[in-house]
């Protein structure tokens, strides 16, 4: 069985992944839409920035976030000036780190989905009296539904497995910033292989089930009634 501490870490990880995925869907959808439909100079620069977390070692990302969010960093100082605590070593700090870390995993599937839809159905909707928001929610979103499912799944799963960014940014405070991957690392460090097994196995099973359910469901998404 999982110890209380391990269970706490697991729940914290799930909460972190859920909050991160939610924020990423809210931020990533307009960003992906904009990248597909807007024409502006320097679009390639923005796309490269969005894709950076794919290639950077998480420790690099975590290191710069630590500097930026810490009490001496620009954002940390701003937080202090506004009368709140810096985000490092807090759950909110982990959320900020995870959002950046998992950004491409949400934005890119959405970008692909919007690209695939193209302009044709949106133009048709416009000739049927649908305004821009109407077109987005009743045509683009349902046509991109597989993209949304993929984006949410990848964003969630990728955050579940986060290690480097959390370690740099959040440390290892049980109940506040200790996530499963770090708890496992601790167990292994302490040669406590049984506990490591339990936790690692749980994460493995959870991740597999999540992906399995999503892929199975994705195949069966049929006609959506208006």
């Amino acid at each position: 069985m999982l110890s209380d501490a391990d269970l706490t870490a697991l729940l914290l990880t799930l909460r972190l992944a859920a909050v991160t995925t939610l924020i990423l869907l809210v931020l990533g959808t307009p960003l992906a839409w904009w990248l597909v439909h807007a024409r502006f100079r320097g679009k390639a620069v923005l796309e490269a920035i969005v894709a950076l977390p794919l290639v950077l070692p998480p420790t690099v990302l975590g290191f710069y976030l630590l500097l930026a969010l810490g009490p001496d960093g620009p954002i940390g100082r701003l937080m202090l000036a506004l009368g709140s605590q810096p985000l490092v070593f807090t759950f909110s700090g982990l959320v900020v780190g995870s959002v950046i870390y998992s950004l491409p995993f949400v934005v890119q599937p959405l970008q692909n989905a919007f690209n695939l839809i193209g302009k044709a159905p949106l133009e048709a909707a416009a000739t049927l009296r649908a305004g821009p928001w109407d077109r987005f929610f009743t045509v683009a979103v349902p046509l991109a539904r597989r993209g949304f499912v993929t984006a949410a799944t990848l964003g969630f799963a990728h955050t579940l497995g986060e290690f480097g960014v959390v370690l740099m940014l959040g440390g290892n405070i049980p109940g506040r910033t200790q996530v499963v991957s770090i708890a496992i690392y601790d167990h292994v460090e302490a040669l406590n292989y049984d506990s490591a097994h339990m936790l690692a196995g749980t994460l493995l099973l959870l991740s597999f089930l999540l992906l399995f359910v999503v892929y199975a469901a994705n195949r069966r998404i049929g006609v959506v009634k208006p």
Binding site: A120, E123, A124, A126, T127, L143
Partner: peptide, 23 residues
């Protein structure tokens, strides 16, 4: 476009794939 009383039938019909005919 959405504020013009215009009907446009495209060469490729452009029906919405996520809806049935009634939709």
């Amino acid at each position: 476009t959405h504020r013009r009383a215009v009907g446009l039938v495209f060469q490729d019909a452009r029906l919405f794939d996520h809806l049935d005919v009634f939709g």
